[in-house]
Design a protein around this nucleic acid. Structure first.
Lengths: 204, 204
DNA sequence: TGAGTTTTATACTAATCGATCCAGAAGTCC
DNA sequence: GGACTTCTGGATCGATTAGTATAAAACTCA
């Protein structure tokens, strides 16, 4: 927030939002500076680099913005107040709903925007992989909490359970991109969650 | 197959294979001509364009090569000799095994190599989406065959079932990229398939 | 008013993008 | 051997890539 000097002619927040939508749709490498600058209000290259250090720095900022907004659909995995099963189910359903909405690009930015990069941008790939790892950890916490409170038997294979729900979660991105409607994914989630009930019953 | 003229100095088949691995790993747009030519045996630009019309034509050829080799793990969906449940299960397990192998890039080329492109290459995205659509159709055929032969009740929601198995299948690509081992995915498939048994039992 | 600060427009950089041109090399066929 | 065909090395194409240099514009503050 500079107190002196010429004021910025564009809204920085809106510009980041526009950039996020572009990266979300086309990915980090396939989104060019020219596209970004046009979408951010036809700003000049000088304005771009004055406000955002580089294309990569802007991308990192859009990932943070995404996590703080659209990406919050998955925060239930880290919400200790929710019952483990409800946390996982809610994360899946809200992700499916968000990713199929028509008001923004389809699928998940964290999954789609850097799944394949040139060798020189491998660190972008790794940065997004770490974000996905955090989700996996959240799902793992839910499974472990369920075992701890007796909801699931302690004989259950934790990594397997994590992989089962997370693989489905990751698949939603491509399904959404391919135009599969929310209703079908949501109905599939209902049946996926029945696995939890089946394992839970064995415990009773 | 030219009968006259100077013979080609490189093996075309091997070159396509090398190109396939690059596209598989980095995607269509993030793989440059320079990278391709180097991997194909340090061939010149002239040699490249003489043998392959364009970068896009080569990519289409590598997709065909992929479908005819590594991609055959999913042909069980279209194998009428297999029981429907076995067909789906085999497709999932073989895909998981292939995509986690260390002898080639991780994940599925059809899912990963063109999931996000620049606007001018949207047709590449659509081409790969059509390939995924063929898989979906194969899974749908399996579900419908199971209903027809009484294996599943005719009350089952076909699009839901297709989406359930296909979402998991698509998720394997990202899981494999993230280094999740085959064993975990395979164990998850076992539990995913239990949904089939649960629906099947209701029929008896 | 004028010093200090920040953003702006404009022009420009070197590198890379996919693709092409041309001359010569290296074959087959008669 | 000579005509014909195809491939190769090397230079090059125009367009685009991310990023920068410069100086004027537009603001705050004293």
């Amino acid at each position: 927030m500079p107190r002196t000097g010429r004021p910025r002619a564009f809204n920085r927040d809106e510009a980041v939002l526009a950039a996020m939508f572009l990266f979300w749709e086309h990915g980090f490498e396939s989104t060019s500076l020219a596209q970004l600058r046009a979408a951010m209000g036809h700003i000049s290259a000088a304005s771009f680099y004055a406000a955002f250090e580089s294309k990569e720095a802007l991308f990192r900022e859009t990932v943070e913005r995404y996590k703080a907004t659209y990406g919050r659909v998955m925060e239930s995995y880290h919400d200790q107040r929710l019952a483990p099963k409800a946390a996982i189910e809610q994360g899946l359903r809200r992700s499916a709903r968000m990713q199929t909405e028509g008001s923004h690009p389809l699928g998940c930015l964290v999954v789609l925007s850097g799944i394949s990069c040139s060798p020189e941008n491998q660190h972008i790939q790794e940065m997004l992989a770490k974000e996905r790892e955090k989700n996996r950890d959240g799902i793992k916490d839910c499974i472990e909490r369920a075992i701890a409170n007796g909801e699931l038997p302690d004989t259950v294979d934790v990594p397997m359970m994590v992989t089962m729900f997370d693989t489905f979660l990751l698949g939603i991105s491509t399904q959404a991109r391919d135009g599969i409607p929310f209703g079908q994914i949501d109905a599939a989630i209902t049946h996926l969650m029945s696995i939890w009930d089946a394992l839970s019953r064995k415990n009773g």
